[in-house]
């Protein structure tokens, strides 16, 4: 049983939704990233999404774009990120880690080399936003045989046929992007998401996380009512961006604890 699957099973038993925070690895440095990962776990993160910075993050808004630029300016590379995951894993055997990024840095490392090293250091899942199912067959096979969960995005405009196709490949969870736009956008409609969840659940057996547009306790609680997991990215990256050096972990921890409380206060129908 994968760490991600185990975590969702446990939460289901407890009647709680998962909290999945995102941070960009290397922003502002990989040392801070390691501290942030431990802080996120302590603050109640169920899965940590660790962004692999890319020079051309087309699906991201300005916040994560700036974080990527800061990380790359500090010499962050995929190999060094994997080393940081290894250090995290040596102290935390329970919190699943998902790498999220773009195809090219992974291709440059090589699919085989990446899959085996990621599995070795204790990565649990991989989401490459610009590698849709049609283009990812070879990659997915390598991930799965290394014991890693391929995570996929679904959007409000994904057709039923594509949902079915993604359902066949997806493991761990799927990430439903709650609005058309880039990360950090601001027009979340909880009602639309709720209606969409029912359609998605007809096709999918894995849990559904919802992200894009979740910025505070209220929107997180709204999503926790209808989805299996709440994904928060840009708002946390803003917290890091606005922190004085050395206070990133404390600020992010406080913010995430607030979200955790809001999510756990929601009575989930199961």
């Amino acid at each position: 049983m994968s760490r991600i699957h185990g975590r969702f099973e446990k939460l289901k038993g407890e009647g709680r939704a998962a909290l999945i925070p995102y941070i960009t690895a290397g922003d502002p440095s990989l040392e801070v990233t390691l501290a942030l990962m431990h802080e996120l776990a302590a603050a109640g993160a169920d899965v940590i999404e660790l962004g692999v910075p890319f020079s051309d993050p087309q699906a991201d808004g300005p916040t994560i774009q700036r974080a990527s630029e800061r990380a790359l300016a500090r010499g962050t590379t995929l190999r060094r990120i994997l080393d940081v995951v290894a250090r995290f894993r040596s102290l935390d055997a329970d919190t699943p880690v998902v790498l999220m990024g773009y195809a090219n840095p992974v291709e440059a490392m090589g699919y085989d080399a990446f899959a085996s090293r990621a599995a070795e250091v204790g990565v649990d899942g991989v989401l490459l936003v610009d590698l849709p199912p049609e283009e990812s067959r070879g990659f997915v096979d390598r991930l799965v045989s290394a014991g890693l969960d391929p995570i996929y995005l679904l959007s409000p405009t994904t057709t039923d046929a594509r949902i079915g196709e993604i359902a066949r490949l997806a493991r761990g969870y799927v990430y439903y992007v709650s609005l058309t736009g880039v990360t950090g956008a601001k027009h979340l409609q909880v009602g639309d998401v709720s209606a969409r969840m029912e359609v998605l659940r007809r096709h999918l057996s894995v849990p559904i996380g919802v992200g894009f547009g979740i910025r505070d306790a209220q929107s997180a609680a709204g999503i926790a009512k209808v989805a299996d997991a709440v994904v928060i990215g840009s708002r946390i990256v803003e917290e890091i961006e606005g922190s004085a050096p050395g206070s990133e972990a404390a600020n992010v921890g406080a913010f995430v604890r607030g979200i955790r409380q809001a999510i756990d206060a929601v009575a989930r129908k199961d």
């Binding site: 849709p132 283009e135 994904t158």
Partner: peptide
Amino acid sequence: RGHFGPYGGVFVAETLMHALD
């Protein structure tokens, strides 16, 4: 699917898939 040998294709986030189709 837009391939020229091993090149081309559709490497975009799911949010753009429908628009491209």
